[in-house]
Amino acid sequence: MSTFIVIPALNEEKYLGQVLDNLKERGYNNIVVVDDGSTDKTYEVAKSKNVTALKHIINRGQGAALQTGMTYALLNNAEYIIHFDSDGQHNPDEIEKLLAPIKNENFEACLGSRFLSKQKMPLKRKIVLKGGIFLIWVMYHIKLTDVHNGFRAFSREGAKKTIMTTDKMEHASEILEKIKKNKVRYKEIPVNIIYEERHLKEGRKGQGRFDAIQILLKMIFKKMGT
């Protein structure tokens, strides 16, 4: 059974190598790095580690990069697909924990949750995330404990039912919308996200306040049927 790890990466030459080494050490060989138009050597780093490296010739956003990796994985007969972070925020030891309900309990998607694991996190981030949870509940009537966690697992069927059309950070909401709309069998699994100082610099990954407002507006427009 082939498990594909999809890693969207933008200017991650510093940390990507270590992330890939950690995954390979644990026996994951189907790793797909999608370089989303980086201006540094992200693509070269991925290539040097002998993993599949796809290059977006211009930046299209994290959602677009994830979907490129998902499309590639599906084309290459992936049975399971994992969304994984490129800068070491996700723990590779938790991948099997995410996959277990899909493999053993017939779930189609497993979503990592920081709140189920009672993880400590900065207050500001906690408030924003709780706001996101409320918003997703209001807009899509799907009640979760964590809504913008990038650590996810899908079965092949689950991946086909959650094909993303949004390019940027709003893909996280779109996945949940598709899960609800296409009746994807999902489960939340407690995971721990590693917060080092470099991860906490706001806006580093395009999640600043203005991006949040933009995402909200796009969600509303999408809901209006544009």
Binding site: T52, L54, H56, I58, R60, A64, Q67, T68, Y72, T226
Partner: peptide, 30 residues
């Protein structure tokens, strides 16, 4: 409103092209 919808549509088309190029280039390399 129309312009916004059209722009979104164009953005989606650009992404589709970029995605196809990325996947095709990879299969060529391998």
């Amino acid at each position: 409103f129309r312009l916004y919808a059209k722009l979104e549509d164009t953005e989606k088309k650009i992404t589709k092209i970029i995605r196809t190029v990325a996947i095709k280039n990879e299969s060529k390399t391998s």
